[in-house]
Design a protein around this nucleic acid. Structure first.
Lengths: 122, 122, 122, 122
DNA sequence: GTGGTCTAGACCACA
DNA sequence: GTGGTCTAGACCACA
């Protein structure tokens, strides 16, 4: 994972999205053990507080569970994982559309612009 | 214009984007006079300092020109306006695509998801 | 005369320096009549208040004299003119040297850099 | 550093030039950490907001990088530092020459006047 | 502890 | 009236 220190995007959110992406793409699975906060911090070269915050927020959303003395685990609930993954992509798409609408682009124009960009980058 | 006071998005950036959007859609034109800082602040119900910061950052980008004692004006350079407008939509689209790619969506899936969302909202 | 609206340099000072330069170079002479504030403002496409301020400051320095109902005149005192002209160039030079010294340039380096720039611009 | 509170020169610009001068003379180097906004403000006896503005403008020019929660650092790019240092002295010299030219001084006269002033001040 | 945003308000410079 | 600078201080986000 590449942490981007320049961007306005907070690091703890980058970590959360990194994990949710891994869930969405199947690289991480239900019940799997996550690296300890300490290890994760070291691996990402990031302050342990920052990892803690990311884990805490994911725990609040019931995406992960911390078992004292044992470690941190992805939830066993596949529904929960599915839900969070969906949420992430839904959010990305709807924010994108909202912003394009503010620029007065029509549906057709939005589709064309997306296509153009998808091809250009190949 | 709707200022969102709750969001993480700083007000001064919201003001900047509001003006850039108006330029992109042609509601504001090259050389046009902007409301004075005080008037804009009153209209948006924010502090004049906040408006000033938005104006100042746009001046640093050469998008607007301020003349002390006179007022604040959109640049005369249509190229500059075009450039900044393009930049805005380019940035929105490429960030969107980048995020979708990270989620392992294929080009085809991205297009389908965009279409689905565009129609659903109608 | 070209007024520069972009610069941080206030217009009224630009007007003052413009007139002092004309005195320094002999284009304007002792006792000569200046354009009325109104005419000057029109010629320079500038707010009459601005011209008034420039005239007022020059009057404070006894460089010009206003005779009510008659007009505004350069002082008759050649010494005064000489003094103000000198002052202007002295000020320009000593501020320049001070700034270069702050950058730790030696006398020799300053002279070399000035020479290089004088030639380059020819 | 001496802040001049009386002058027309804004404090935040004085801070910027102070730092750029330190870069130009090598007292500050690429990658180095700057004092925190609060510390710098206390040291200079100015308001933290004023320091922040100086830092922010330098960040806009990519001269420094700030990381929230971590601190403020000189850019790693030696080229950038070189560029900004050069810019500063270039600007000082060319503005000086421009003003002298307006007073109809010849190249030779400008050089003589500079020399005379450099020696007088010793 | 470190940076970021915002408000309220004073005072100034300029046109 | 219009923009520019600065202070004091609150509150937040992040590491």
């Amino acid at each position: 994972m590449d942490i981007n220190y320049d961007t306005a995007r907070p690091i703890y959110k980058q970590i959360m999205e990194y994990i949710i992406r891994k869930l969405a793409t199947g690289e991480l699975e239900a019940g799997e053990k996550l690296p300890s906060q300490r290890d994760m911090a070291q691996k990402l070269e990031v302050n342990p507080n920052t990892v803690q915050r990311a884990y805490r927020e994911m725990e609040n959303r019931r995406l992960i569970e911390t078992r004292r003395g044992v470690g941190t685990f992805i939830t066993e609930s596949r529904e929960k994982i599915e839900e969070v993954s969906q949420e992430l992509s839904e959010k990305i798409i709807s924010e994108f559309i909202e912003q394009m609408r503010l620029l007065n682009f029509t549906n057709q124009e939005i589709i064309e612009l997306v296509k153009k960009n998808l091809f250009r980058e190949e």
